[in-house]
Design a protein around this nucleic acid. Sequence first.
DNA 1: ATCGGCTCGCGCAA
DNA 2: TGCGCGAAGCCGAT
Length: 458
Amino acid sequence: MSIQPTRIQPLNDVDVRKGEYVLYWMQQSQRSAYNHALEYAVQQANKQDRMLLVVFGLMDDYPEANLRHYTFMLEGLKETLATLTSRGIKMVLRLGHPPEVALKLGRRASMIVCDRGYLKHQRAWREQVAQEANCRVVQVESDVVVPVEVVSDKAEYAARTIRPKINRQLETYLVGLKQTRIKNPSLGFKIKGIDLDDTEGLLRKLNLDPSVPPVSRFFKGGTSRAGKRFEGFIRHRLKHYDQHSNQPQTNDISHMSPYLHFGQISPLYLALKICRAPDFLKAAKEAYIEELVVRHELAMNFAFYTANYDVYSCIPGWAQKTLADHQQDKRDYVYNRRQLENADTHDPYWNACMLEMKHTGFMHNYMRMYWGKKILEWSATPQKAYRTTLAINNKYFLDGRDANSYTGVAWIYGVHDRAWSERSIFGKTRYMAASGLERKCDIAAYVKKVADLVRSAI
DNA sequence: ATCGGCTCGCGCAA
DNA sequence: TGCGCGAAGCCGAT
């Protein structure tokens, strides 16, 4: 299958030059399988009769990144480097600010191909490369099923407004991607890069916050790990998926968010796998596609079209007003960030999900909502709650600092949601209660599940 | 156990 | 201009 032209965007007007190689500057789509940017780069290299060189810029001052994130990322990159090698493609990791790494190797390239990210800094990096490179820079989208601009030209109001817009594109975009064989292998090309054989040594050398330990026991990075885990999900868990979205005591979820965040697996690949699952699982398949495509890409839409997606002021006017109306309301409990991070509150359910997050780098989606709503309830002001929630989210989750993170936190404060009965502190934003957990799921089993996880992690 | 009301605003029908 | 309806809810009445 060919790559849809809407995935491909030239970022500057510079011509393709004579150069030693085509450069694929990999940053978001950290995989060799189902990567449109990579396949586009291979096709360009073949067309120009050049080699393909892949470079990844490794910086150790990535905002809020810590040992946990980097361990997972390097586990994945190690595999990606190996699979590219088996395809005859040279990949190097270079220490430095990603756009500068790309620009440096871009000096000898005929063109630079890059993948796509929706966060501010990711966009700024690509703009810098596009402006400063003296060769053509082309961005290829591979981390959403339907490119954001194809879906909509504005920030969508809610899932229900984006859903039909995505659905009518699915026929066009839910198509496979074939690997193209490289004509001129680049493995012999002499160029220095970071040695990935000794990942632990490399991690020690990098200037990373060591206070958040790796979680390889629960999530080991890499495309093949993601694929195997997904196979298991389809075989054993998918059949419960539509029934168990608010059953955190079960493990009937795919656990793909860390892999998606680092681009170690393609959402298109996952969607196609789901489509091929048996027809009698129709309801479950639709429920999964809703999460993987509609809500995931609503998050991309939010980050892309909302300039201030990472601050409190991004929430809708009605929500800001109603939360301001209740800013002075008495709080029965107020916890500071340290107490929250230590899972030291009066609420055993909340403590359990905080521990799940801390020890595994992950949390069941249903509990993510409860977790966030309670921080709003237990903070002196909604603004402070928002900052605390985002900071803890980005610190512990493997998929922190994702468009999904910003959207998920904003949802707590009314984004993509609607008004409900007015009440203390929350105003008209949606409230969630411990009694709801008791009513709707086996929350005691969830608490026990987390306790067992934590015990096994120590 | 189940149901209606709460409440906002988008997008479509008219 | 009116109206249906919605990312995962709560609460009180029946």
